[in-house]
Design a protein around this nucleic acid. Structure first.
Length: 500
RNA sequence: GCCCCCAUCGUCCAGCCUGGUCCAGGACAUCAGCCUUUCAAGCUGAAGACACGGGUUCAAAUCCCGUUGGGGGUACCA
């Protein structure tokens, strides 16, 4: 039994997907179950929409869970905010057996304490003032309704050792472990308490989480001991990093899974990329989908050094997946992507607006006309785009009614002048008008013959044609583009170019 | 500061556990060439790393110790 336990505090995070992937892989390859648990115990950081976005993002990635807030299961509820009674009851057992205590210290006193400790260059931490409270004193405070928290009574005279399956034994001295708050004064548990209680109750046997939790694992171990519960196996994954090696953050990297979807990344590419971070397949293959990862998945192959999140490599992988896809499927993906962006209310750029305008005028995103036409452009651009988002800029010339926004000099090759280009274009228009069959091969044959006739090199001659027809020096293959546009549009654009 | 984790090309990984086959292999990025109607894609090639110092050993990228560096933690956040 494994779980992923994100907190709904903002956009679904790439780190959540990373953790989910490895938990999912372990569950799938060991016949275990995978739980999604929402850790929403921090009411100040809670964000309404976040949980739905998390579930949607995991679904998008294909990381389905057996149990979770939206799918139910035998170990619910799966939102910690709905389990507060459970935490309260369990905390009471700790108080009863003497492994936890009520602390009535005010936040002000704690802040003052920390300041003093800092001034004395001592490690900050609770001084244990309320540890020694007599039962009557506690009763008195309680009677006065003094707010309190419940703290773990950490044994300061011994070390806590736990075994990390990936890293070996980790030993931390009790005196360096703070008397952790377990239950806040608002009645909500802290992460540490809720996490341990839930993992136990939900029968989680394997905890795979990020490295940042290593130092607090002793607290969790102490809790398992205090409750008399069996510990799960711990595995701490390396932390995803920014280029400067700091923990990945949204200021230095896109961390929102929504961002990747909005920008045309394929879920299988993102997942594959995440898998490559700290993991390698036994056969050394770098491109593998989830199914093939599962075929030979081995937790022992997870490495412990933290990888830098390299967008360049992700982009390359995304391109690989795009090229490996079928034309029909990719066509549908482009359409779905445009629909998704519209649904999200994202402002289209000029190219995207042109594409959408054409599609709207021709039956809409789910119409046959759009699918047919986008499908016909696909062979021209499939190997030229690295994200779905790059489709529109590259194919704008097929959808736009007017492409004449280019600068005049773009049509003029080096060592040629505007007059020469104009003469050439007139000649080309004349020849194309008389061309019998309007297809790629015929157009190419004709233009190449004109190269000889005018003594222009192919690359020279094709440049003004390309700019006139597509509006840019960079375009899909020219002759195919002209065929797809049709004689009428092509000639109109060439004619317009001659005019000016 | 204190505690903990980590350490192979710019980046991601392989090799390390079970020392010799490693003057270290692959991928991304970079550069060059080829292909070529632009841009891509593709192909070929180049450059590029065992952090440092000790120790163990006939032999160390691999084992041990230390140093240095990087990161994380040190909240009534998760």
């Amino acid at each position: 039994m494994v779980r992923v336990a994100p907190s709904p505090t903002g956009d679904p995070h790439v780190g959540t997907a990373y953790m989910a992937l490895f938990n999912y892989a372990l569950a799938q390859t060991t016949g275990g179950r995978f739980i999604l648990r929402i850790e929403d115990t921090d009411r100040t950081r809670y964000q309404e929409d976040s949980e739905r976005q998390i579930t949607e993002a995991l679904t998008w990635l294909g990381l389905s869970y057996h149990e979770g807030p939206d799918v139910g299961g035998p170990n619910g509820p799966y939102r910690q905010s709905e389990r507060t009674d459970i935490y309260r009851e369990n905390t009471q057992t700790l108080i009863d057996n003497g492994t936890a205590y009520r602390c009535f210290c005010t936040p002000e006193r704690l802040a003052e304490l920390r300041r003093a400790q800092r001034a004395r260059k001592e490690p900050p931490g609770y001084d244990g003032l309320c540890r020694g409270l007599l039962p009557e004193e506690v009763e008195a405070k309680l009677a006065e309704n003094t707010p309190f928290v419940i703290r773990l009574k950490v044994p300061k005279d011994r070390a806590v050792v736990f075994h990390d399956e990936l890293r070996g034994d980790v030993e931390i001295e009790g005196k360096t472990i703070d008397d952790q708050v377990l239950l806040k004064s608002d009645g909500f548990p802290t992460y540490h308490l809720a996490n341990v209680v839930d993992d136990h109750l939900m029968e989680v046997t394997d905890v795979i989480r990020a490295e940042e939790w290593i130092t607090s694992t002793p607290k969790h171990v102490l809790l398992y001991e205090a409750f008399g519960w069996e510990k799960p196996r711990f595995r701490h994954m390396p932390l995803l990093r920014n280029k400067d090696k700091s923990k990945i953050s949204k200021r230095k990297n896109p961390t929102s899974l929504i961002w990747y979807k909005e920008n045309g990344y394929l879920p299988e590419a993102l997942l594959n990329f995440l898998a490559l971070m700290g993991y390698s397949s036994p056969d050394g293959e770098e491109m593998f989908d989830l199914a093939s990862m599962l075929r030979d998945f081995d937790v022992k192959r997870i490495s412990t050094s933290s990888p830098v999140f390299d967008m360049d490599k992700l982009l390359w992988l995304n391109g690989e997946y795009i090229r490996a896809d079928s034309e029909a499927n990719l066509t549908q993906r482009v359409l779905d992507h445009l629909a998704y962006r519209r649904e999200r209310g994202l402002e289209p750029d000029a190219a995207e607006a042109d594409v959408l305008a054409w599609i709207d005028a021709n039956g809409g995103l789910d119409g046959d006309a759009a699918r047919d036409f986008v499908g016909r452009t696909m062979p021209l651009v499939q190997e030229r785009i690295k994200t779905l988002q790059e489709y529109a800029p590259l194919t704008r010339c097929f959808f736009a009614s007017d492409v004449s926004g280019y600068a005049q000099e773009e049509m003029v090759p080096k060592k040629r002048n505007a007059g020469e280009v104009e003469d050439l274009l007139r000649g080309i228009v004349g020849a194309l008008e008389k061309l019998e069959s309007w297809d790629t091969a015929s157009i190419e044959a004709l233009l190449r013959s004109l190269c000889e006739e005018y003594s222009w090199k192919p690359r020279e001659l094709f440049q003004p044609v390309r700019v006139a027809v597509t509006g840019s020096k960079i375009s899909p293959p020219l002759f195919e583009t002209m065929e797809l546009l049709g004689r009428e549009t092509t000639l109109a654009r060439l004619g317009a170019a001659v005019e000016v």
